[in-house]
Design a protein around this nucleic acid. Structure first.
Length: 365
DNA sequence: GATATTTGACCTCT
DNA sequence: AGAGGTCAAATATC
């Protein structure tokens, strides 16, 4: 047996959570979805502190209104996590850096109001930020960790726009559901080292925890426009009649959509910052974010279901316009927690809720 | 036939 | 030794 896989000097770990039952959409982390290698630690710290300030100000605004306690709680959580991350970065910088200079610190993930089962993997990641973490495999350098709990009504939406090939499944000790292992379909063709793990939450089977390792070095342009067939829960998907790729028409629509949604991630080895490009249409909620990036079934159901073509965006706009308080909290949470990735914000500030106060604060650097 | 998935075995790490 | 991660042959699907 040979191991053809090149050891990763830098890896990216990004964890997403999917839930169709969580009442609040929360990005648990403001980690660097868009991680720019040029963005040094101090910049991250500044970002986090700034984010915390913005959140605090918004909380103040919220407190003076009749907002739900849930919204307040989310804001508080985000503020705490923001400052926590900043402190971690400071500590990390002082530690002399076991982590390579280019690798951002592993970010702690304070539990949010959305209860999500932590996998051993993510626990390791969390611990590694503040405690000397002895991970197996030469201590991978986690660059990112993003967690999203979102309600979208679409179960098992774990597609991120990339094409994955399942290469293993493992029963994890203490976990009710097995963990599935995927790697980029273009691993051989393009030497793409991206991998991901998908595990269903014990606590909430509707929640999928997706952990990304490594970044895609394959050329996204070479990716097929059809939806990857890989699924963490194949049996379920079959039950949901999601066994086949999208119909050609839907695939084409998706392709067009994805032209506007460029997700470029790269390993630090490749020194290519992650970047997202979205159309000027509404963007900023986790829901939106997820619908675009993480919905395998979502894309399918989405296309086959109620939406067609540009409705994808229209729905967002509608969603924004009708966001109630709790949804707003999700938006705030999302935008706040992705401060480090400015591209995660709506391209147009108008896309934010009218009551969204960040517009006035020069949130963008 | 090509490609993807399944799954038992093996490898690495703690 | 045990757990997690990966490989690769067998199998399934297109």
């Amino acid at each position: 047996m040979t191991t053809s896989q090149t050891p990763l000097s830098h890896e990216q770990l990004t964890t997403f959570h999917y839930s169709k039952s969580n009442p609040v959409r929360v990005v648990h982390s403001a980690s660097q979805l868009v991680h720019n290698k040029d963005m040094d630690t101090s910049a991250f710290i500044v970002n986090e502190l700034k984010q915390g300030m913005e959140l605090a100000m918004h909380l103040k605004f919220i407190l003076s209104s009749e907002s739900s306690s849930e919204t307040k709680h989310v804001l508080i959580q985000e503020i705490i996590s923001s400052y926590d991350r900043a402190m971690l970065m400071v500590n990390w910088g002082d530690s002399g850096g076991q982590t390579p200079a280019l690798a951002p610190p592993v970010l702690s993930q304070p539990e949010s109001s959305v209860s999500i089962g932590e996998s051993p993997q993510s626990q390791d990641v969390n611990q590694s930020s503040s405690v000397v973490n002895k991970k197996r495999k030469a201590t991978p350098k986690w660059q990112d960790q993003i967690r999203i709990s979102t309600e979208n009504g679409l179960e098992g939406n774990t597609d991120d726009g990339y094409s994955w090939r399942k290469y293993g499944q493992k029963v994890i000790l203490g976990a009710k559901f097995p963990r599935s292992y995927y790697r980029c379909t273009y691993r051989n063709a393009h030497n793409c080292i991206a991998r991901k793990q998908v595990q269903r939450s014990d606590e909430d089977p509707a929640v999928f925890e997706i952990t990304y390792r490594g970044q895609h070095t394959c050329n996204p342009a070479t990716k097929p426009s059809v939806i990857p067939t890989a699924s963490p829960e194949k049996h379920e998907i079959k039950q949901n009649n999601y066994q086949r790729p999208l119909p050609a028409k839907s695939g084409e629509m998706l392709s067009n959509l994805k032209k506007n949604l460029t997700v470029t991630t790269s390993d630090l080895d490749a020194i290519v910052p992650c970047s997202f490009s979205f159309p000027s249409a509404s963007f900023g909620t986790v829901e939106n974010y997820q619908q675009f990036n993480f919905s395998n079934e979502a894309e399918n159901n989405f296309m086959q279901g109620s939406l067609s073509g540009s409705n994808y965006f229209t729905e967002w706009g509608t969603d924004f316009q009708h966001h109630d308080e709790s949804n707003l909290s999700g938006m705030i949470s999302t935008t706040a927690s992705t401060t480090n990735s400015p591209l995660a914000f709506p391209a147009d500030p108008q896309d934010l809720s009218p009551s969204f106060p960040f517009n006035d604060l020069g949130f963008f650097i």
